[in-house]
Design a binder for these strands. Structure first.
Length: 794
DNA sequence: ACACCTCGAGGTCG
DNA sequence: CTCGAGGTGT
């Protein structure tokens, strides 16, 4: 069933279709305890049907699912009739709907800003408990709201449910309603046991179904093994006793009588108060020990409740305000392959747009071919989509029943969709790669995009689109070409691109601005940004080159350690490997990159076109490099080259690289006597540069030990601590915070581990904060961080 | 085994 | 800004 076609259908036909689907879902959910569609999808269908029936009242049939709440109970348990039906609540999904809810109450009761009793909406199973003379006598599931199943023996196993009331003053007959649920911890523990049992115990799908399934066990001993809990939230039949006049007071009474009532229940004034409560609970949601799918607002005044009454079976005095669904159902329209900077071919699912967890999702990464195979996702499939950690959209699973008949398993294409080169997956690797390297337009674009990135060369205004245009129209084939672009080139390019696309952006036409003028501004800005980027640091430059395995952190290590591009670009890998945190794999990758003549040429071109490295680390690192070189020269026992002279030579050149290229004249210019200069040059000529650099290895290694000691001396208050930043900081940017922390000696890492000293949590911090809590890592808020900075100026 | 880094991806907001 | 997979380093 494809819902993209649904809107085109006749209302009557659509209503019939909706009914059939909802009834089917009801059956699977309530009778079989084996739901086949997510709750959100069910809600959506139901809302659509309600809307349809509201618009066309003549379409309402007696058997419509809107005319009742659930499906018939299964025959396995005795049926219990609820003398007072168990309610179902109307749903609100937006602030506007909550305000509308309040407005209706205000109008009908002629009150202002009514007081609401507010509580979390537990994701479990509603039940009803009957107490005669204070003794628990019978318990039942909600069923369809009218009739439920008697599950008294199972309920008796739940320790949160009192078998005998406490305190005093309870009515002779008391029916208490609430929710049976499975706390997350219990759910996890149970599933761990299930996994360990290797198939003997079936793992539970989710806490909600777990609660439902557990209560419907025919053998209460099985129920007893399930970690179930209970919260009370309402009353049913009450005979022979006085009750308070408000819902909140009723809940208090229930607590006194021994029922668990959530700590999170509260009261709130008006829609504004309710919305504030919604935000407050929503913020805590992930940290709660149980699942909730929203909050419930109930008019606190019971007399008011009676006056408002019901529409059908839903009360006018209460509403459930649901959180955005975290899982949704949609269809896969295509599976595309993206080619990354390194050629990595990543499959991505293009989805029919769907609203999940508060945002519209149209794409979901499938990571790699293995993942696609694991899920068996095919084009045309109906899938469940979730936002992992509430952020990154991912495909959870496919619904095989909805698979179109001729869908074929997906396969990684054999050739790059951009350049046609072979896509190859190396033995033992997970990622498949396009082998086109820089002949592949996609890789070129990505390489330039990376080069221009804020944390690399920081060329503002150079987006992916323009890079594509510049490349396709032949203006830029390597990053070095960026620095020979002139204003005219950009304008010409823009004009040709617009001609090719046959478009001038619509909003420009509308606003009446001359497109040429906008293009001029863009071109001017870009030229200026490129100009700015010419002055950069060594670590940014190295990072920008996009060497495999060289990210920011490795680039910085290289910069700090060697301090000199001319040196680094000629270093053999065994020397590179001396740097802490650089191992054989990375060292070889760097070596291999610089061995490519094309890459060396790009670097030469960049320098020739004005890229200058202003290196903050140079002095100490350069000194180290000089000393290393000097000691190699010394040990070479070159005639007449004393230790002092060797140091003099090393110091006279900007870099070792420059020195290695020096001829006798230049050496003499550095102050060496002519014969010594000749001898040194002879030495340099007989050993090629790489060989000489290799000879530095020993010297560098010794220096490394020395520097390690020196680093420990320049100690800050946070020396030796590892800090992780998460969430949004308001007073300063992340980069500023990072810089300051580093200045104080801290190491700023990207992920939380037990070695983390503390986590700084800003606004809307995510999973890293959870992880920190889990590991018991100290957590700082922004205020504390700022206070610390004030206490420890840099 | 564990910690950390790289690389790629998606969505929002100004 | 964030997540997750896959790798590398030690």
């Amino acid at each position: 069933m494809n819902r993209t076609h649904a809107v085109d259908m006749e209302p009557a036909a659509r209503a019939a279709e909706l009914r059939a689907r909802i009834e089917d879902a009801n059956h699977r959910y309530h009778v079989l305890d084996d739901p086949d569609i997510p709750d959100a999808e069910y809600d959506r269908l139901m809302r659509e049907l309600v809307a349809l029936e509201t618009a066309h009242p003549e379409l309402v049939t007696p058997d419509s699912p809107t005319q009742r709440v659930g499906a018939a109970p299964s025959g396995a348990f005795a049926t219990v009739r609820h003398e007072i039906p168990m309610l179902s609540l109307g749903n609100a999904f937006s602030d506007a709907e909550v305000e509308e809810f309040e407005r209706r109450i205000e109008q009908r009761l002629e009150v202002r800003d009514p007081l609401f009793s507010v509580e979390p909406k537990f994701d479990g199973l509603a039940i009803s408990l009957r107490y005669d003379d204070g003794m628990f006598v019978r318990g039942a599931t909600r069923g369809d709201g009218e009739k439920g199943e008697e599950v008294t023996p199972n309920l008796r196993t739940i320790k949160a449910i009192p078998l005998k009331l406490r305190g005093k003053g309870w009515p002779r007959v008391l029916e208490v309603r609430g929710e049976v649920y499975m706390p997350r911890a219990g759910f996890e523990r149970y599933n761990e046991k299930a996994r360990a049992s290797e198939g003997r115990i079936k793992p539970l799908v989710n806490p909600r179904n777990a609660a439902a399934g557990s209560l419907r066990q025919l053998d209460p001993r099985i129920t007893a093994q399930r970690p179930l809990a209970f919260y009370a939230y309402a009353l049913g039949v009450v005979e022979g006793g006085e009750l308070p006049a408000t819902h909140s007071a009723t809940l208090k009474k229930l607590r006194e009588w021994g029922f668990p009532v959530s700590e999170l229940v509260d009261t709130a004034r008006g829609a504004a108060g309710c919305l504030a409560y919604y935000a407050r609970i929503g913020a805590q949601r992930d940290a709660l020990p149980f699942d909730i799918d929203g909050v419930v607002y109930k008019l606190d005044d019971l007399a008011g409740q009676r006056e408002l009454g019901f529409v059908g079976r839903t009360p006018r005095w209460a509403i459930a305000h649901k959180f955005p669904a975290q899982e949704q159902q949609t269809t896969v329209e295509a599976i595309d392959v993206n080619i990354g900077r390194t050629g990595a071919a990543t499959p991505t699912a293009r989805l029919a747009p769907v609203f999940v967890g508060g945002v519209t999702v149209t794409n979901a990464t499938l990571h790699n071919a293995d993942q696609v195979a694991r899920l068996d996702v095919r084009v045309g499939d109906t899938v469940i989509v979730r936002r992992a950690g509430d952020v990154i959209p991912e495909v959870v699973r496919v619904i095989p029943e909805h698979r179109p008949p001729h869908a074929k398993p997906w396969q990684m294409p054999a050739h790059c969709p951009i350049c046609g080169s072979d896509i190859v997956r190396e033995e033992g690797e997970v990622v498949a790669r396009c082998t086109g390297e820089l002949t592949c337009a996609a890789q070129r674009v990505q390489a330039i995009f990376h080069f221009a990135a804020r944390r690399a060369m920081d060329i503002d205004g150079l987006g992916e689109r323009y890079i594509e245009d510049l490349g396709e129209l032949g203006y830029v084939t390597s990053v070095a070409d960026l620095y020979k672009l002139r204003l005219d080139d950009l304008l010409e390019m823009k004009r040709r691109a617009d001609e090719r696309d046959g478009t001038t952006p619509a909003h420009l036409l509308k606003s009446g601005v001359k497109a040429g003028k906008v293009a001029t501004k863009w071109a001017e800005n870009l030229i200026e940004a490129i100009g700015h980027s010419r002055r950069t640091t060594l670590e940014r430059f190295l990072y920008a080159l996009g060497i495999e395995h060289v990210g920011e952190s490795t680039a910085k290590a290289l910069a700090v350690w060697f301090g000199d591009l001319a040196l680094i670009r000629h270093l053999p890998w065994p020397i590179l490997k001396l740097v802490p945190d650089i191992g054989g794999e990375v060292a070889r990758a760097i070596d291999a990159f610089f061995q490519q003549p094309g890459n060396q040429k790009v670097i030469d071109d960049l320098i020739a076109r004005g890229v200058t490295i202003i290196d903050m680390h140079a002095p100490s690192a350069k000194l180290r490099a000089e000393l290393a070189m000097a000691s190699v020269l010394e040990q070479a026992e070159i005639p007449k080259l004393t230790a002092k002279r060797a140091e003099q030579v090393a110091a006279a050149f900007d870099s070792i690289g420059a020195m290695l290229k020096a001829d006798a004249v230049a050496l003499a210019g550095a102050g060496l006597p002519r014969d010594t200069a000749d001898a040194v040059q002879a030495f340099i000529v007989t050993h090629d540069g790489r060989d000489l650099l290799l000879r530095c290895e020993h010297a560098v290694e010794q220096l490394r030990a020395a520097t390690a000691g020196a680093a420990a001396i320049e100690t800050g208050p946070l020396e030796g601590s590892t800090v992780v930043l998460t969430g949004t900081l308001s007073g300063l940017t992340r980069d500023e915070a990072k810089a300051k922390l580093e200045a104080l000696g801290a190491k700023v890492a990207g992920s939380v581990s037990k070695k983390t000293s503390f986590v700084v949590a800003g606004e809307s911090a995510g999973s890293k904060l959870d992880k920190a809590r889990e590991l018991g890592v100290e957590i700082w808020d922004e205020e504390r961080l700022l206070a610390f900075f004030i206490g420890h100026p840099t």
